[in-house]
């Protein structure tokens, strides 16, 4: 598809001008991250699917009125979060939002065995929900600190502080594997460390 090389701003404006392929590209590019993020708030898979469907239907019907965005991912994550929480609130299920999205399934471990580090995974699982969410948004959805602050409706400095604390915890979990990785990748720096 031609749209592959467009940046978010261009893609978004193509879509607003009625290019259906642009929306299709947006849909397929962001579906899984949206689904993953939506599932954080609810165990109900159908609810997440429905809300993604409705989100895109709304985009289609309101495309003339939509503003510009240069970060489609952020825009979509914001909408899906708002929608799902609103729906859960209506059903009075809002108190059950404590679903952890870092519960690794067994099959997940098989996926990429070499890269999996049990210590690090355990350390991630021990983080608070807010720490997990921010780590997830930053390093798996590549949102910037400002964007995370916007999405979570918290202060920019808070995002940084939470991140620093979480990262310190995670880095303490460093296991043998990471040292091996460093030896492999950066022999000089490691040999220096070994002398100390």
């Amino acid at each position: 598809m031609e749209g592959m090389n467009l940046n978010d701003k261009e893609l978004w404006s193509c879509f607003k001008q009625g290019d259906n392929d642009a929306l299709k590209l947006i849909y397929y590019r962001h579906f899984k991250p949206l689904y993953n993020y939506g599932r954080k708030f609810t165990g109900d898979q159908g609810l997440v699917e429905d809300n993604i469907q409705e989100l895109f239907l709304d985009l289609l019907s309101k495309k003339e009125k939509l503003g510009d965005t240069d970060n489609i991912r952020l825009y979509l994550l914001k909408s899906i979060k708002r929608r799902i929480i609103r729906k859960l609130y209506k059903e009075r299920k809002v108190e059950t939002i404590d679903f952890s999205f870092f519960d690794f399934a067994e099959t997940e471990i098989q996926a990429d065995k070499k890269a999996i580090d049990e210590n690090l995974r355990n350390a991630i699982n021990k983080l608070s929900e807010q720490q997990k969410e921010i780590i997830y948004l930053k390093y798996f959805n590549f949102l910037g600190n400002k964007e995370i602050a916007e999405l979570l409706e918290i202060n920019y400095q808070t995002v940084r502080n939470v991140l620093v604390i979480a990262l310190k915890k995670l880095r303490k979990s460093k296991s043998l594997i990471s040292y091996l990785f460093l030896i492999f990748q950066y022999p000089n720096s490691i040999s220096k460390r070994l002398i100390h």
């Binding site: 899984k32 993953n36 999205f101 890269a115 798996f140």
Partner: peptide, 15 residues
């Protein structure tokens, strides 16, 4: 190196 390792944990189980 830490970022690459963290990213390798693929914490997106729901998809």
């Amino acid at each position: 190196a830490f970022l690459i390792k963290l990213h390798g944990q693929r914490i997106t189980p729901f998809d």
